[in-house]
Design a protein around this nucleic acid. Structure first.
Lengths: 198, 198
DNA sequence: TCGATTAAGGTACGGCACGTACCGTACCCT
DNA sequence: AGGGTACGGTACGTGCCGTACCTTAATCGA
């Protein structure tokens, strides 16, 4: 009945679900979680709220699903030749990620998912697993070069720099952390720590 | 006209403001920021929304003000006799704080204050200043005992343990961090780090 | 002492967004 | 062909934010 011309065939099942999710991702990227309105997602996907609520029980669930789609990029592990360079490179990569609206989206989702432990768990998973791997890799390479003592480094030690950066971002404002702070984290904390532990 | 009997004298100015703030704090503590409704605060304070909007421009501002009231407690700096005990004690204190609904409130506020840089700044201030002092104190005492080398420790180093705990809380779920993790943080990261730096 | 001014109370909105209900209709399977 | 299922459209009910408008009490200045 509408003026729209997409009534050729009616989408169903997985196809419609993908369309909804794509619309949700777009809204999330454009307007953040606050702008992720069920009505707007429905309109953008060319469907109605009913189709959404048959798949996700509430807005927060849709938001988490859209966020998963939004953050499925992986940054390659750097290999500059020495541990200091690798660590700095990793930190800079994360720092760029923090500058994108994705961080704000994540915070909004964390706040909105307080009542749904399941959603919280999903989010925490994504955040937690985000960074441990690359740090172990660069430490292994450093050990092979003799930069640090051999032996397994405690994961808590390996990711200290990442954790400090996260804290810096949360503590100071929302903007990108200046590069000299990254250098400080690496030189004052991370390198002294990993060079000692073995 | 109501059945309530508090219509003896009409509160004004600072008195009314305190009543509103107390009601907001109570709502915040009971139901979190999501439950901090202007209507409910007004009803609880025995007044109406008008009186609130004359003092705070919007809900977020009232939320921040109430949060300030909520976190004006100070934990004394521990003095157990050695650095390890002091650090653990500090961590345990913070850990207890995280168990209260205050942490959830803070997350909600952080997410909701994205559009108000002023409010964000106030919140960040409170979070940032929260813990540096005590850590410097216990490090000074440790230096006096000869446990660590003399000289000024970088603030970033001094608060590493606190930052790790915060991260642990944000990363893994919502519950209290188990004590063995606190021990791990102190023994694997904090003590090796501060004993080396000097 | 007494009006004028200020600040409170009371209430009713407009607007928006979430989540639900109902009904007609297109698709799919047997 | 016929039944079951999912989609489209739409209209609600509810809750909350923020605002407008008026009434009423308290305070202040002359």
């Amino acid at each position: 009945m509408g003026v729209g011309a997409q009534a050729a065939t009616r989408r169903r099942g997985a196809e419609l679900e993908r369309a909804i999710l794509r619309a949700a991702v777009a809204e999330l990227a454009e307007s953040g979680y606050a702008g992720l309105t069920m009505d707007r997602v429905a309109r953008r996907a060319g469907t109605n709220k009913n189709a959404i609520y048959r798949r996700w029980p509430h807005r927060a669930a849709l938001g988490v699903a859209a966020y998963r789609q939004l953050v499925t990029e992986q940054t390659p592990t750097p290999d500059t030749g020495d541990l200091r360079g690798d660590a700095l490179e990793l930190l800079r990569g994360v720092n760029c990620d923090l500058a994108t609206p994705r961080a704000e989206v994540l915070r909004s989702l964390l706040a909105s998912a307080n009542d749904e432990p399941e959603l919280l768990a999903q989010l925490h998973e994504q955040v937690a697993d985000g960074g441990t791997g690359p740090w172990l890799t660069i430490l292994d390479r450093a050990a092979a070069r003799g930069e640090v003592a051999d032996g397994t480094v405690h994961p808590r030690v390996a990711t200290v720099a990442l954790v400090l950066l996260r804290n810096e971002y949360l503590t100071r404002g929302l903007t990108t952390v200046p590069d000299n702070v990254l250098v400080e984290i690496v030189d004052e904390v991370y390198l002294p720590l990993v060079r000692r532990t073995g």
